[in-house]
Design a protein around this nucleic acid. Sequence first.
DNA 1: CCAGACGTTGTT
DNA 2: GTCTGG
DNA 3: CCAGACGTTGTT
DNA 4: GTCTGG
Length: 236
Amino acid sequence: MCGRYTLRTNPQRIAEQFELAELPLLTVRYNIAPSQSVGAIYATRNSSGSIVRRWAEFSWGLLPAWSESSTGGQRPINARSETAAEKPTFREAFRRRRCLIPADGFYEWRREGKEREPFYFTLRDEGLFAFAGLFEIWQAVPGQASPDDVASCTILTTEANGLLREFHDRMPVILEPQDYAAWLDPTVEDAARVQPLCRSLDAEKMQHWPVSQRVNGPKRDEPECIRPFRQPRLFD
DNA sequence: CCAGACGTTGTT
DNA sequence: GTCTGG
DNA sequence: CCAGACGTTGTT
DNA sequence: GTCTGG
C-alpha cells in the first residue's frame, strides 16, 4: 500500500511550502518506486538552538540501524503509524527521525480477481502534500560516518478513508500543513505527542482516476502514467 | 540461557 | 512459488 | 507497488 | 539494539 507516487511540483513551490532555506535539487517524477532515491525534509537544531529544515535524499525502504549488512534483509516501504513507536525496527526513528516526504499524487491498484487496475490519487486541486515518513542512517562503520552509510526511509500508513476503502484497508498518512512543524521537531521525543497527527485524510479532500498499466513498470517514469485511462470493456 | 527475528499489504 | 531489483 | 529473475564455471 | 521463541 502506497508503493508508488509522483512528485512533479517545481523546486520553488516545494521550498515555499516546506519553508526550506535552499531550493531542493530534483527532477519531475511520475513514477517513484521502492528502492529508489526519494526527496524528504527533516529538521535539526543548530548551535543557537533554532530548528533548521533540511532537504535530503533517502532510499525508499527502511534499512534498520542494526542490520548486519546494507544488502539483503527486509526493507519495509511502509510502517503502521499505530504501532511503529513500539516496533524495534521503527521505534528510534519514530522518536528522533521523522520526516516529510513531499508528493503530489500516489497510485493504488484495484484487484478484481486476477486483474489489477491502477488508479491515481491526488488532492482535489492536485496540490503538493506530504507523507509522514521515518528515516534511518545505517552506518557501515558503527559510530562514525563513512561513504558506505545508507540513508533510508519509510512511509507511515493509517486506516483507509472512504475513498481508499474500496481499494485497501490502509492508506498513507498525509499530514496537515499545520502539523508539519510538530512532526519534524526532533526535540519532541515523546511518540505519544506526534502519533495523533497520523490520521486519515478526509476523502472529500481527494480525487482519483484510473490510469493505464503503463505505471506498472517501475522504469516507466513519464507523464502518460497519470493520464486518465478507461480500460477497454468487452461489451460496451 | 542462546538463537533468531525484527515489516507491510492482501490473500487463502 | 518466492525473492530481488527498480 | 509491480516486473523480472530464479544458475554455474570460467573467461573477458 | 531489543524482543520473542525454544
